[in-house]
Design a protein around this nucleic acid. Structure first.
Lengths: 279, 279
DNA sequence: AAACAGCGTTGATAATAATGAAACAAAAGT
DNA sequence: ACTTTTGTTTCATTATTATCAACGCTGTTT
């Protein structure tokens, strides 16, 4: 016993303080996405690689809780109305969106480009707030599109500041799909980018997700200095002069700091060098 | 203390096609509310009558899933950002709020009073959308306030159309607190009100939640003919002439039918008697 | 028509996970 | 200073869940 504990158990990750059944339920929940907003039982079971019967019982419980609901004719499952309630509750008691929105508005006004804020969800970034400038030409941000970690400034900004263990885990699962000319192609390139992002305090993705777009993103931290969200400006690349770029960077950085502060949080402190010294 | 807990809620139901662990997790989730948006471990465990250790493991799993999060200094738990993501997803793939909102807007324009839509959540109705008229005097609807079932038109409209078994269950737990002069005081009164609501197809609560306010609410049904939401107008009582009342009733009823239809749903059909008998 | 293939659902048992009392250090109150 | 309470871990016992095959369906193919 003592030997096991000392020797081999470091490698086994044994978070004994969770419940596997609940983990599995949340795992299934994670399969609902924009591309696949509803599932038949068998399809979901197959996708998640769990037994049909198990999946059904899990979904049964989630249904009772209202987190998902089932169309009685097609038998398909989808997210339920309870999530609307929960989100409303969360936003009423600890506003995030409504705190960030005015910051985005101000930023957009200042830099004259579309801006948005993202949360990390599952394996990609999802937009939670958007502001658009009045200019006739501007980048349209699809509010529901999932933004891949490796191909967007938001993703890089997030990934660069995430705890090391989780970072490794996430990177392992990146598909490195090429979205545009400037998309990062492999892990080595990505690591360089992340290092650069950490040094600069913000990520610049030049034509990496869409060809005409340059994204400039900075992390938003919570009380603990953990990345909680990102804030970014998406600019039309060919009107971004060096001077404009610099100005935008500064503005984005300032806005992200304001957001960090507004979210109730401690300041990022020195993220530049020592991101690891947290314990 | 009272024996309340002995009749330990819905947890002792035994439908074999659910998972008790997940039920318990969702049960805990339900304790987060506007009044108590965050909990310390022991407090939540006590409130839910669950062992500390169990509560901790459940919360651990929910935290990993992002449904809740923990402030590392105060150790308090609260709803997490994942709910924001899920709500966004649900709304993007199956819009409810954005479908109902224009209906509310039109209704408000027509009747000149504040209107709102509610979902049932836990033990009360919660608002998911609001429209306010331009008039200088109007009812202010607190978007985050929970509306008790017995004291609001929305609650009555919901309760009147809910399946009988659930109705009994819900009524059993009503506290019959008096909120205003017209609040329903006991079960007998309530049953009368519900019968009347079913007959009329809508609920009218005259000064039952706040003294100057009359609420007029109608149910919104889903594909199955199940109540999913309610839609109501909250009027300033003393400017509600008989004629205005009638007009508002008709308008609310029409709007609720439009909402039912717009939500993708089958028509209400005859759930009990005929819904057409309103005058 | 009949056989087939896939679906959602159910039940029984082996395998696993959850439970709760006790014990602990560290905070928080007094 | 002391007492109480909190979050956390451990461990033997108990209860829950995974699994697999089988069922009744519906729609499709032979």
């Amino acid at each position: 016993m003592a030997i096991q504990r000392a020797a081999s158990n470091d490698l086994d990750k044994r978070p004994n303080n969770t419940m596997k059944t609940i983990d599995k339920a949340l795992f299934l929940l994670g399969f609902f996405s924009l591309d696949t907003p509803e599932y038949r039982l068998s399809d979901l079971a197959r996708a998640a690689n769990v037994d049909k019967a198990t999946a059904m019982r899990i979904l049964g419980s989630l249904s009772i809780g209202g987190l998902i609901e089932q169309h009685p004719e097609t038998k398909k499952y989808r997210l339920g109305t309870a999530v609307l309630h929960l989100a409303r509750l969360r936003e009423a008691s600890f506003p995030v969106v409504s705190v960030i929105q005015p910051i985005l508005d101000a930023l957009t006004l200042e830099v004259g480009e579309s801006t948005h804020a993202c949360l990390f969800a599952g394996s990609a970034m999802t937009t939670i707030a958007i502001a658009e400038p009045q200019r006739p030409t501007r980048v349209y941000i699809n509010p529901a599109e999932a933004l891949p970690l490796h191909a967007t400034a938001s993703g890089l900004a997030y990934l660069a500041h995430v705890p090391e263990a989780m970072q490794k885990n996430l990177i392992k699962r990146i598909d490195f799909k090429t979205h545009a000319k400037g998309t990062v192609r492999n892990k080595a390139e990505l690591m360089d980018k992340l290092e650069e992002t950490r040094l600069n305090g913000l990520a610049v993705s030049w034509r990496s997700f869409e060809d005409e777009v340059t994204g400039i993103a900075a992390p938003i931290f919570d009380w603990h200095g953990k990345v909680q969200a990102t804030l970014s400006a998406t600019c039309i690349s060919n009107r971004l002069t060096d001077k404009a770029l610099l100005g935008t960077k500064v503005a984005v950085l300032k806005a992200s700091q304001k957001a960090t502060q507004a979210m109730g949080g401690a300041s990022p402190v020195q993220t530049h060098v020592a991101t690891r010294e947290q314990r």
